[in-house]
Lab assay of single mutants.
Amino acid sequence: MAEAPPRRLGLGPPPGDAPRAELVALTAVQSEQGEAGGGGSPRRLGLLGSPLPPGAPLPGPGSGSGSACGQRSSAAHKRYRRLQNWVYNVLERPRGWAFVYHVFIFLLVFSCLVLSVLSTIQEHQELANECLLILEFVMIVVFGLEYIVRVWSAGCCCRYRGWQGRFRFARKPFCVIDFIVFVASVAVIAAGTQGNIFATSALRSMRFLQILRMVRMDRRGGTWKLLGSVVYAHSKELITAWYIGFLVLIFASFLVYLAEKDANSDFSSYADSLWWGTITLTTIGYGDKTPHTWLGRVLAAGFALLGISFFALPAGILGSGFALKVQEQHRQKHFEKRRMPAANLIQAAWRLYSTDMSRAYLTATWYYYDSILPSFRELALLFEHVQRARNGGLRPLEVRRAPVPDGAPSRYPPVATCHRPGSTSFCPGESSRMGIKDRIRMGSSQRRTGPSKQHLAPPTMPTSPSSEQVGEATSPTKVQKSWSFNDRTRFRASLRLKPRTSAEDAPSEEVA
Protein backbone atom coordinates (compact mmCIF):
# COMPACT_ATOMS: atom_id res chain seq x y z
CA MET A 1 0.00 0.00 0.00
CA ALA A 2 1.46 3.33 -1.05
CA GLU A 3 2.08 5.70 1.78
CA ALA A 4 0.51 9.14 1.76
CA PRO A 5 2.88 11.96 0.96
CA PRO A 6 4.13 13.70 4.09
CA ARG A 7 2.44 16.92 5.10
CA ARG A 8 4.67 19.92 4.43
CA LEU A 9 4.71 22.95 6.70
CA GLY A 10 6.26 26.35 6.00
CA LEU A 11 7.40 27.89 2.75
CA GLY A 12 9.93 25.33 1.55
CA PRO A 13 9.68 23.82 -1.95
CA PRO A 14 8.73 20.17 -2.36
CA PRO A 15 11.52 17.62 -2.96
CA GLY A 16 12.34 17.00 -6.56
CA ASP A 17 10.97 20.34 -7.69
CA ALA A 18 13.65 22.77 -6.55
CA PRO A 19 13.01 25.64 -9.03
CA ARG A 20 9.38 25.88 -7.95
CA ALA A 21 8.64 28.18 -5.02
CA GLU A 22 5.17 27.55 -3.65
CA LEU A 23 3.42 29.63 -1.01
CA VAL A 24 1.82 27.30 1.50
CA ALA A 25 -0.52 28.38 4.26
CA LEU A 26 0.63 28.42 7.86
CA THR A 27 -1.33 25.26 8.55
CA ALA A 28 -1.24 22.44 6.02
CA VAL A 29 -4.82 21.78 5.09
CA GLN A 30 -5.65 18.88 2.82
CA SER A 31 -8.88 17.99 1.21
CA GLU A 32 -11.20 15.43 2.70
CA GLN A 33 -10.35 12.99 -0.04
CA GLY A 34 -6.67 13.22 0.83
CA GLU A 35 -7.35 12.71 4.51
CA ALA A 36 -9.39 9.63 3.74
CA GLY A 37 -6.58 8.13 1.70
CA GLY A 38 -8.07 8.88 -1.68
CA GLY A 39 -6.13 10.14 -4.62
CA GLY A 40 -7.49 13.69 -4.46
CA SER A 41 -5.07 16.58 -4.54
CA PRO A 42 -4.77 18.86 -1.51
CA ARG A 43 -6.75 22.06 -1.52
CA ARG A 44 -4.58 25.13 -2.12
CA LEU A 45 -4.96 28.16 0.10
CA GLY A 46 -3.82 31.74 -0.27
CA LEU A 47 -1.85 33.79 2.23
CA LEU A 48 -5.03 34.86 4.01
CA GLY A 49 -6.39 31.32 4.24
CA SER A 50 -8.98 31.65 1.45
CA PRO A 51 -9.08 28.68 -0.98
CA LEU A 52 -7.74 29.28 -4.48
CA PRO A 53 -9.81 28.27 -7.53
CA PRO A 54 -8.73 25.01 -9.21
CA GLY A 55 -7.36 26.65 -12.36
CA ALA A 56 -5.63 29.58 -10.68
CA PRO A 57 -1.84 29.70 -11.11
CA LEU A 58 0.31 29.54 -8.04
CA PRO A 59 1.93 32.84 -7.12
CA GLY A 60 5.69 32.86 -7.40
CA PRO A 61 8.51 33.57 -9.78
CA GLY A 62 8.64 30.09 -11.22
CA SER A 63 5.00 29.19 -11.73
CA GLY A 64 5.15 28.65 -15.49
CA SER A 65 3.09 30.69 -17.93
CA GLY A 66 1.08 32.28 -15.11
CA SER A 67 4.29 33.68 -13.64
CA ALA A 68 5.35 35.11 -17.00
CA CYS A 69 1.96 36.78 -17.44
CA GLY A 70 2.20 38.13 -13.91
CA GLN A 71 5.63 39.56 -14.59
CA ARG A 72 4.45 41.21 -17.79
CA SER A 73 1.39 42.67 -16.07
CA SER A 74 3.54 43.87 -13.17
CA ALA A 75 5.99 45.58 -15.53
CA ALA A 76 3.13 47.19 -17.44
CA HIS A 77 1.57 48.34 -14.18
CA LYS A 78 4.88 49.91 -13.11
CA ARG A 79 5.19 51.75 -16.41
CA TYR A 80 1.59 52.93 -16.09
CA ARG A 81 2.16 54.23 -12.57
CA ARG A 82 5.43 55.88 -13.58
CA LEU A 83 3.76 57.67 -16.50
CA GLN A 84 0.86 58.74 -14.31
CA ASN A 85 3.20 60.12 -11.68
CA TRP A 86 5.27 61.96 -14.29
CA VAL A 87 2.21 63.62 -15.84
CA TYR A 88 0.91 64.64 -12.43
CA ASN A 89 4.23 66.26 -11.52
CA VAL A 90 4.37 68.11 -14.84
CA LEU A 91 0.87 69.54 -14.39
CA GLU A 92 0.73 70.11 -10.64
CA ARG A 93 4.38 70.42 -9.55
CA PRO A 94 6.35 71.73 -12.53
CA ARG A 95 10.13 71.79 -12.36
CA GLY A 96 12.80 72.48 -14.93
CA TRP A 97 11.67 72.20 -18.53
CA ALA A 98 8.07 71.49 -17.44
CA PHE A 99 7.63 75.25 -17.09
CA VAL A 100 7.69 75.51 -20.91
CA TYR A 101 4.19 74.04 -21.08
CA HIS A 102 2.91 76.40 -18.41
CA VAL A 103 4.47 79.39 -20.19
CA PHE A 104 2.64 78.31 -23.36
CA ILE A 105 -0.66 78.11 -21.45
CA PHE A 106 -0.01 81.55 -19.96
CA LEU A 107 0.55 83.05 -23.42
CA LEU A 108 -2.73 81.53 -24.63
CA VAL A 109 -4.66 82.94 -21.68
CA PHE A 110 -3.01 86.35 -21.98
CA SER A 111 -3.74 86.51 -25.72
CA CYS A 112 -7.37 85.64 -25.05
CA LEU A 113 -7.54 88.39 -22.44
CA VAL A 114 -6.03 90.99 -24.81
CA LEU A 115 -8.43 90.04 -27.60
CA SER A 116 -11.35 90.22 -25.18
CA VAL A 117 -10.34 93.78 -24.30
CA LEU A 118 -9.93 94.74 -27.97
CA SER A 119 -13.36 93.33 -28.77
CA THR A 120 -14.92 96.11 -26.69
CA ILE A 121 -13.27 98.85 -28.82
CA GLN A 122 -15.36 99.90 -31.80
CA GLU A 123 -12.44 100.25 -34.21
CA HIS A 124 -10.97 96.79 -33.53
CA GLN A 125 -14.13 94.88 -32.66
CA GLU A 126 -14.58 92.93 -35.92
CA LEU A 127 -10.98 91.72 -36.24
CA ALA A 128 -10.74 90.91 -32.54
CA ASN A 129 -13.93 88.84 -32.65
CA GLU A 130 -12.64 86.74 -35.56
CA CYS A 131 -9.28 86.09 -33.92
CA LEU A 132 -10.94 85.41 -30.60
CA LEU A 133 -13.26 82.82 -32.14
CA ILE A 134 -10.30 80.88 -33.57
CA LEU A 135 -8.40 81.15 -30.31
CA GLU A 136 -11.43 79.91 -28.41
CA PHE A 137 -11.51 76.71 -30.48
CA VAL A 138 -7.85 76.09 -29.69
CA MET A 139 -8.30 76.79 -26.00
CA ILE A 140 -11.35 74.55 -25.71
CA VAL A 141 -9.38 71.63 -27.15
CA VAL A 142 -6.27 72.33 -25.04
CA PHE A 143 -8.06 72.93 -21.76
CA GLY A 144 -10.51 70.08 -22.29
CA LEU A 145 -7.69 67.59 -22.81
CA GLU A 146 -5.75 69.08 -19.93
CA TYR A 147 -8.72 68.77 -17.58
CA ILE A 148 -9.21 65.10 -18.49
CA VAL A 149 -5.49 64.37 -18.11
CA ARG A 150 -5.38 66.14 -14.76
CA VAL A 151 -8.24 64.06 -13.39
CA TRP A 152 -6.62 60.87 -14.72
CA SER A 153 -3.13 61.63 -13.38
CA ALA A 154 -4.50 62.44 -9.93
CA GLY A 155 -4.82 58.68 -9.39
CA CYS A 156 -1.11 58.50 -8.51
CA CYS A 157 -2.03 59.98 -5.11
CA CYS A 158 -3.63 57.59 -2.64
CA ARG A 159 -6.40 60.02 -1.65
CA TYR A 160 -7.47 60.50 -5.28
CA ARG A 161 -7.70 56.85 -6.38
CA GLY A 162 -10.99 55.41 -7.53
CA TRP A 163 -14.00 57.30 -8.76
CA GLN A 164 -14.58 58.81 -5.31
CA GLY A 165 -11.02 60.10 -5.21
CA ARG A 166 -11.31 61.55 -8.70
CA PHE A 167 -14.53 63.29 -7.70
CA ARG A 168 -12.73 64.67 -4.63
CA PHE A 169 -9.98 66.00 -6.90
CA ALA A 170 -12.56 67.58 -9.23
CA ARG A 171 -14.05 69.48 -6.27
CA LYS A 172 -10.82 71.38 -5.65
CA PRO A 173 -11.20 75.16 -6.18
CA PHE A 174 -8.90 75.39 -9.19
CA CYS A 175 -10.53 72.39 -10.85
CA VAL A 176 -13.93 74.02 -10.35
CA ILE A 177 -12.59 77.22 -11.96
CA ASP A 178 -11.27 75.21 -14.91
CA PHE A 179 -14.64 73.53 -15.37
CA ILE A 180 -16.56 76.84 -15.20
CA VAL A 181 -14.24 78.48 -17.74
CA PHE A 182 -14.50 75.44 -20.03
CA VAL A 183 -18.31 75.53 -19.93
CA ALA A 184 -18.29 79.30 -20.54
CA SER A 185 -16.00 78.89 -23.55
CA VAL A 186 -18.24 76.20 -25.02
CA ALA A 187 -21.28 78.44 -24.49
CA VAL A 188 -19.53 81.38 -26.15
CA ILE A 189 -18.55 79.29 -29.17
CA ALA A 190 -22.06 77.82 -29.46
CA ALA A 191 -23.66 81.26 -29.29
CA GLY A 192 -21.21 82.71 -31.80
CA THR A 193 -21.72 80.02 -34.42
CA GLN A 194 -25.54 80.10 -34.34
CA GLY A 195 -25.73 83.66 -35.70
CA ASN A 196 -28.82 84.66 -33.70
CA ILE A 197 -29.57 87.91 -31.90
CA PHE A 198 -28.46 86.53 -28.53
CA ALA A 199 -24.96 85.79 -29.84
CA THR A 200 -23.56 89.31 -29.43
CA SER A 201 -24.69 89.77 -25.83
CA ALA A 202 -23.54 86.25 -24.92
CA LEU A 203 -20.09 86.86 -26.37
CA ARG A 204 -19.73 90.15 -24.51
CA SER A 205 -20.95 88.82 -21.17
CA MET A 206 -19.42 85.36 -20.99
CA ARG A 207 -16.04 86.09 -22.53
CA PHE A 208 -14.98 87.94 -19.43
CA LEU A 209 -15.45 84.78 -17.40
CA GLN A 210 -12.22 83.75 -19.08
CA ILE A 211 -10.41 86.26 -16.85
CA LEU A 212 -10.60 83.48 -14.26
CA ARG A 213 -8.02 81.64 -16.34
CA MET A 214 -5.41 84.04 -15.00
CA VAL A 215 -6.17 82.73 -11.51
CA ARG A 216 -5.34 79.17 -12.53
CA MET A 217 -1.74 80.13 -13.32
CA ASP A 218 -0.89 79.69 -9.66
CA ARG A 219 -2.53 76.32 -9.12
CA ARG A 220 -0.57 75.52 -5.97
CA GLY A 221 -1.66 78.79 -4.35
CA GLY A 222 1.80 79.94 -3.31
CA THR A 223 0.99 83.64 -3.55
CA TRP A 224 -2.26 83.30 -1.62
CA LYS A 225 -0.58 81.23 1.08
CA LEU A 226 2.19 83.82 1.39
CA LEU A 227 -0.33 86.67 1.66
CA GLY A 228 -2.41 84.75 4.19
CA SER A 229 0.61 83.95 6.36
CA VAL A 230 1.70 87.61 6.39
CA VAL A 231 -1.80 88.85 7.29
CA TYR A 232 -2.15 86.19 10.00
CA ALA A 233 1.27 86.98 11.49
CA HIS A 234 0.49 90.72 11.71
CA SER A 235 -3.24 90.47 12.36
CA LYS A 236 -3.19 92.45 15.62
CA GLU A 237 -1.32 95.39 14.11
CA LEU A 238 -3.58 95.46 11.05
CA ILE A 239 -6.77 95.29 13.10
CA THR A 240 -5.54 98.11 15.36
CA ALA A 241 -4.66 100.37 12.42
CA TRP A 242 -7.93 99.68 10.61
CA TYR A 243 -9.99 100.18 13.75
CA ILE A 244 -8.47 103.56 14.58
CA GLY A 245 -8.68 104.63 10.93
CA PHE A 246 -12.36 103.68 10.82
CA LEU A 247 -13.06 105.71 13.97
CA VAL A 248 -11.30 108.73 12.48
CA LEU A 249 -13.31 108.31 9.26
CA ILE A 250 -16.76 108.26 10.87
CA PHE A 251 -15.98 111.13 13.28
CA ALA A 252 -14.44 113.32 10.56
CA SER A 253 -17.31 112.66 8.17
CA PHE A 254 -19.92 113.43 10.81
CA LEU A 255 -18.30 116.70 11.93
CA VAL A 256 -17.77 117.89 8.35
CA TYR A 257 -21.39 117.00 7.59
CA LEU A 258 -22.58 119.14 10.52
CA ALA A 259 -20.40 122.04 9.37
CA GLU A 260 -21.30 121.88 5.66
CA LYS A 261 -24.89 120.65 5.42
CA ASP A 262 -26.44 124.13 5.44
CA ALA A 263 -23.91 125.96 3.25
CA ASN A 264 -22.89 123.24 0.77
CA SER A 265 -25.22 121.11 -1.32
CA ASP A 266 -22.49 118.47 -1.85
CA PHE A 267 -22.87 117.42 1.80
CA SER A 268 -26.65 117.17 1.86
CA SER A 269 -26.54 113.72 3.53
CA TYR A 270 -24.26 111.78 5.83
CA ALA A 271 -23.66 109.27 3.02
CA ASP A 272 -22.15 112.03 0.85
CA SER A 273 -19.93 113.01 3.76
CA LEU A 274 -18.79 109.40 4.24
CA TRP A 275 -17.93 109.20 0.55
CA TRP A 276 -15.87 112.39 0.84
CA GLY A 277 -14.10 111.11 3.97
CA THR A 278 -13.20 107.78 2.35
CA ILE A 279 -11.81 109.42 -0.78
CA THR A 280 -9.86 111.98 1.27
CA LEU A 281 -8.37 109.69 3.92
CA THR A 282 -7.29 107.12 1.35
CA THR A 283 -5.38 109.91 -0.48
CA ILE A 284 -7.35 109.44 -3.71
CA GLY A 285 -8.95 112.88 -3.84
CA TYR A 286 -11.36 112.97 -6.79
CA GLY A 287 -12.29 116.56 -6.03
CA ASP A 288 -16.00 116.07 -6.70
CA LYS A 289 -16.89 117.16 -3.14
CA THR A 290 -14.99 119.86 -1.24
CA PRO A 291 -15.85 121.79 1.95
CA HIS A 292 -16.64 125.51 1.46
CA THR A 293 -16.79 126.89 5.02
CA TRP A 294 -13.69 127.65 7.06
CA LEU A 295 -14.84 125.39 9.88
CA GLY A 296 -15.29 122.51 7.46
CA ARG A 297 -11.89 123.13 5.92
CA VAL A 298 -10.15 123.21 9.32
CA LEU A 299 -11.87 119.99 10.39
CA ALA A 300 -11.04 118.35 7.06
CA ALA A 301 -7.36 119.35 7.29
CA GLY A 302 -6.99 118.17 10.90
CA PHE A 303 -8.69 114.83 10.42
CA ALA A 304 -6.84 114.28 7.13
CA LEU A 305 -3.46 114.65 8.86
CA LEU A 306 -4.60 112.30 11.62
CA GLY A 307 -6.44 109.73 9.54
CA ILE A 308 -3.98 109.37 6.66
CA SER A 309 -1.30 108.19 9.08
CA PHE A 310 -3.53 105.33 10.26
CA PHE A 311 -4.78 104.49 6.78
CA ALA A 312 -1.17 104.26 5.55
CA LEU A 313 -0.06 101.99 8.40
CA PRO A 314 -1.39 98.71 6.89
CA ALA A 315 0.73 99.24 3.77
CA GLY A 316 3.90 99.53 5.84
CA ILE A 317 2.93 96.58 8.04
CA LEU A 318 2.27 94.34 5.04
CA GLY A 319 5.46 95.50 3.31
CA SER A 320 7.65 94.69 6.31
CA GLY A 321 5.80 91.41 6.80
CA PHE A 322 6.43 90.37 3.19
CA ALA A 323 10.11 91.24 3.53
CA LEU A 324 10.44 89.18 6.71
CA LYS A 325 8.56 86.24 5.20
CA VAL A 326 10.68 86.22 2.05
CA GLN A 327 13.83 86.37 4.16
CA GLU A 328 12.56 83.46 6.23
CA GLN A 329 11.85 81.44 3.09
CA HIS A 330 15.36 82.10 1.77
CA ARG A 331 16.80 81.00 5.11
CA GLN A 332 14.70 77.85 4.98
CA LYS A 333 15.93 77.09 1.46
CA HIS A 334 19.54 77.47 2.56
CA PHE A 335 18.84 75.21 5.53
CA GLU A 336 17.30 72.57 3.28
CA LYS A 337 20.33 72.73 1.00
CA ARG A 338 22.78 72.35 3.88
CA ARG A 339 20.91 69.67 5.81
CA MET A 340 21.76 66.73 3.56
CA PRO A 341 25.49 67.60 3.19
CA ALA A 342 25.70 68.12 6.95
CA ALA A 343 24.07 64.74 7.60
CA ASN A 344 26.43 63.04 5.14
CA LEU A 345 29.42 64.73 6.78
CA ILE A 346 28.33 63.61 10.25
CA GLN A 347 27.82 60.03 9.03
CA ALA A 348 31.21 59.98 7.31
CA ALA A 349 32.93 61.39 10.39
CA TRP A 350 31.28 58.78 12.61
CA ARG A 351 32.27 55.95 10.29
CA LEU A 352 35.86 57.17 10.31
CA TYR A 353 35.84 57.59 14.08
CA SER A 354 34.36 54.14 14.71
CA THR A 355 36.71 52.30 12.34
CA ASP A 356 40.00 54.09 13.06
CA MET A 357 41.16 53.13 16.54
CA SER A 358 44.35 55.20 16.52
CA ARG A 359 42.58 58.52 15.94
CA ALA A 360 45.82 60.41 15.54
CA TYR A 361 44.04 63.13 13.61
CA LEU A 362 41.99 64.21 16.64
CA THR A 363 44.24 67.07 17.75
CA ALA A 364 41.51 69.29 19.17
CA THR A 365 39.59 66.98 21.49
CA TRP A 366 39.51 66.43 25.22
CA TYR A 367 41.66 63.31 24.97
CA TYR A 368 44.47 65.29 23.37
CA TYR A 369 44.50 67.95 26.10
CA ASP A 370 44.07 65.30 28.74
CA SER A 371 47.28 63.67 27.53
CA ILE A 372 49.14 67.01 27.62
CA LEU A 373 47.85 68.54 30.88
CA PRO A 374 47.46 66.71 34.22
CA SER A 375 43.92 65.43 34.44
CA PHE A 376 41.56 65.98 37.33
CA ARG A 377 41.73 62.29 38.14
CA GLU A 378 45.46 62.52 38.72
CA LEU A 379 44.95 65.55 40.96
CA ALA A 380 42.36 63.67 43.01
CA LEU A 381 44.68 60.70 43.39
CA LEU A 382 47.48 63.05 44.44
CA PHE A 383 45.25 64.64 47.08
CA GLU A 384 44.27 61.25 48.47
CA HIS A 385 47.88 60.05 48.52
CA VAL A 386 49.01 63.12 50.48
CA GLN A 387 46.19 62.80 53.00
CA ARG A 388 46.81 59.13 53.60
CA ALA A 389 50.53 59.77 54.02
CA ARG A 390 49.81 62.36 56.72
CA ASN A 391 47.15 60.32 58.50
CA GLY A 392 49.23 57.19 58.78
CA GLY A 393 47.73 55.30 55.89
CA LEU A 394 44.10 56.05 56.78
CA ARG A 395 41.63 58.11 54.87
CA PRO A 396 40.22 61.33 56.39
CA LEU A 397 36.82 59.75 57.03
CA GLU A 398 38.47 56.86 58.86
CA VAL A 399 40.44 59.31 60.98
CA ARG A 400 37.28 61.09 62.02
CA ARG A 401 35.42 57.92 62.92
CA ALA A 402 38.29 56.12 64.73
CA PRO A 403 37.62 56.16 68.55
CA VAL A 404 40.48 57.38 70.74
CA PRO A 405 40.53 55.87 74.30
CA ASP A 406 40.91 58.17 77.28
CA GLY A 407 44.50 58.49 78.53
CA ALA A 408 45.95 56.65 75.56
CA PRO A 409 48.71 58.44 73.66
CA SER A 410 47.56 59.56 70.27
CA ARG A 411 49.43 58.13 67.33
CA TYR A 412 48.54 61.17 65.25
CA PRO A 413 50.12 64.57 65.81
CA PRO A 414 47.76 67.27 67.03
CA VAL A 415 46.42 69.36 64.21
CA ALA A 416 44.96 72.81 64.10
CA THR A 417 41.20 72.78 63.74
CA CYS A 418 39.71 74.93 61.05
CA HIS A 419 36.23 76.24 60.64
CA ARG A 420 34.51 76.58 57.33
CA PRO A 421 32.59 79.85 57.01
CA GLY A 422 28.96 79.36 57.80
CA SER A 423 29.35 75.78 59.13
CA THR A 424 30.41 73.87 62.23
CA SER A 425 33.80 72.30 62.79
CA PHE A 426 34.80 69.55 60.49
CA CYS A 427 37.59 67.07 60.00
CA PRO A 428 40.94 68.87 59.69
CA GLY A 429 41.92 66.49 56.94
CA GLU A 430 39.24 68.04 54.74
CA SER A 431 40.61 71.59 54.99
CA SER A 432 42.99 71.15 52.10
CA ARG A 433 40.47 69.14 50.08
CA MET A 434 38.27 72.12 49.46
CA GLY A 435 37.57 72.27 45.73
CA ILE A 436 37.29 75.15 43.33
CA LYS A 437 33.49 75.27 43.62
CA ASP A 438 33.72 75.62 47.43
CA ARG A 439 36.24 78.43 47.11
CA ILE A 440 34.04 80.26 44.58
CA ARG A 441 30.93 79.72 46.71
CA MET A 442 32.77 80.96 49.81
CA GLY A 443 33.93 84.08 47.96
CA SER A 444 30.42 84.81 46.68
CA SER A 445 28.97 84.42 50.19
CA GLN A 446 31.51 86.86 51.56
CA ARG A 447 30.61 89.35 48.84
CA ARG A 448 26.93 89.01 49.70
CA THR A 449 27.43 89.38 53.45
CA GLY A 450 29.80 92.33 53.57
CA PRO A 451 31.31 93.86 50.51
CA SER A 452 31.92 97.05 52.47
CA LYS A 453 34.45 95.36 54.75
CA GLN A 454 36.73 94.39 51.92
CA HIS A 455 37.48 97.90 50.76
CA LEU A 456 38.25 98.96 54.36
CA ALA A 457 41.05 96.43 54.66
CA PRO A 458 44.53 97.56 53.59
CA PRO A 459 45.18 96.69 49.97
CA THR A 460 47.49 93.77 49.36
CA MET A 461 50.14 93.81 46.74
CA PRO A 462 49.48 91.17 44.07
CA THR A 463 52.21 88.58 43.97
CA SER A 464 52.78 85.63 41.73
CA PRO A 465 51.87 82.16 43.02
CA SER A 466 55.54 81.12 42.96
CA SER A 467 56.55 83.91 45.39
CA GLU A 468 53.88 83.08 47.97
CA GLN A 469 54.97 81.48 51.21
CA VAL A 470 53.28 78.16 51.54
CA GLY A 471 53.34 78.24 55.35
CA GLU A 472 51.31 81.43 55.49
CA ALA A 473 48.35 80.01 53.62
CA THR A 474 47.01 77.60 56.22
CA SER A 475 43.41 78.03 55.11
CA PRO A 476 41.67 78.64 51.82
CA THR A 477 40.34 81.88 53.27
CA LYS A 478 43.79 83.42 52.89
CA VAL A 479 43.42 83.30 49.10
CA GLN A 480 42.82 86.79 47.76
CA LYS A 481 39.20 87.03 46.67
CA SER A 482 38.27 89.00 43.59
CA TRP A 483 34.99 90.25 42.25
CA SER A 484 35.33 88.20 39.09
CA PHE A 485 36.34 84.62 38.42
CA ASN A 486 38.34 85.82 35.43
CA ASP A 487 41.20 86.81 37.76
CA ARG A 488 44.02 84.44 36.86
CA THR A 489 45.84 84.86 40.17
CA ARG A 490 42.83 83.62 42.07
CA PHE A 491 42.35 80.66 39.73
CA ARG A 492 46.01 79.62 39.99
CA ALA A 493 46.05 80.03 43.75
CA SER A 494 42.92 77.91 44.09
CA LEU A 495 44.56 75.09 42.13
CA ARG A 496 47.64 75.05 44.30
CA LEU A 497 48.00 72.36 46.96
CA LYS A 498 47.85 73.92 50.43
CA PRO A 499 49.65 71.86 53.13
CA ARG A 500 48.17 71.31 56.55
CA THR A 501 50.10 72.73 59.52
CA SER A 502 49.83 71.49 63.10
CA ALA A 503 49.01 73.64 66.08
CA GLU A 504 52.33 73.07 67.93
CA ASP A 505 54.94 73.13 65.23
CA ALA A 506 53.87 74.16 61.79
CA PRO A 507 56.70 73.21 59.47
CA SER A 508 56.19 74.47 55.98
CA GLU A 509 55.87 71.66 53.48
CA GLU A 510 55.79 71.98 49.77
CA VAL A 511 54.05 69.43 47.67
CA ALA A 512 55.64 69.06 44.29
Rank of each mutant, 00 (worst) to 15 (best):
M1L: 15
P13R: 14
G49V: 12
P51T: 10
L83Q: 03
Q84L: 06
Q84K: 13
Y88D: 11
Y88C: 13
L91R: 15
E92A: 14
P94S: 15
P94T: 10
P94R: 10
R95P: 14
V100D: 08
Y101C: 05
V103D: 09
L108R: 02
G144R: 08
E146V: 05
E146K: 06
Y147S: 09
I148L: 03
V149D: 10
R150G: 04
R150Q: 06
V151D: 04
W152R: 00
W152L: 02
S153T: 06
S153F: 06
A154D: 09
G155V: 02
Y160D: 10
G162R: 11
G165D: 04
R166G: 08
F169S: 00
F169L: 15
P173H: 04
V176F: 05
D178V: 06
I180N: 10
V183E: 08
I189L: 07
A191T: 10
G192C: 13
N196I: 06
I197N: 08
R204L: 10
R204H: 08
M206K: 07
R207C: 04
I211N: 08
R213L: 11
R213P: 04
R220L: 11
T223N: 07
W224R: 00
L226R: 01
L227R: 00
V230E: 00
V231D: 03
A233P: 03
H234Q: 14
E237A: 07
E237Q: 08
L238V: 06
L238Q: 00
I239N: 06
A241V: 03
I244T: 07
I244S: 07
F246L: 12
F246S: 10
F246Y: 03
L247P: 04
L247Q: 05
A252V: 08
S253Y: 01
S253F: 05
S253A: 11
F254C: 11
L255P: 01
V256G: 03
E260Q: 00
N264T: 07
N264H: 11
D266Y: 02
D266E: 11
D266V: 03
F267V: 09
S268C: 12
S268F: 14
S269A: 07
S269P: 04
S269F: 03
Y270N: 05
Y270C: 02
Y270D: 03
A271V: 06
D272N: 08
D272Y: 08
S273T: 07
W275C: 04
W276C: 04
W276G: 02
G277W: 03
T278P: 00
I279N: 02
I279L: 03
I279V: 09
L281V: 02
T282R: 01
T283S: 09
Y286H: 00
G287R: 03
G287C: 03
K289E: 04
T290A: 10
P291T: 07
T293P: 00
T293K: 01
G296A: 04
G296R: 01
R297S: 04
V298G: 09
A301D: 01
A301P: 00
G302D: 01
A304T: 07
G307C: 05
F310Y: 04
A312V: 07
L313Q: 05
P314R: 10
A315V: 09
G316R: 00
G316V: 01
G316D: 15
I317N: 08
L318R: 11
L318V: 13
L318I: 14
G319V: 11
S320A: 07
S320C: 00
S320P: 12
S320F: 13
G321S: 03
F322Y: 08
K325N: 09
K325Q: 10
K325R: 05
Q327P: 10
Q329K: 06
H330Q: 14
H330Y: 13
H330P: 00
K333N: 07
K333M: 06
H334N: 10
H334P: 00
F335V: 11
E336A: 12
K337M: 10
K337E: 11
K337R: 10
R338W: 09
N344H: 13
L345H: 07
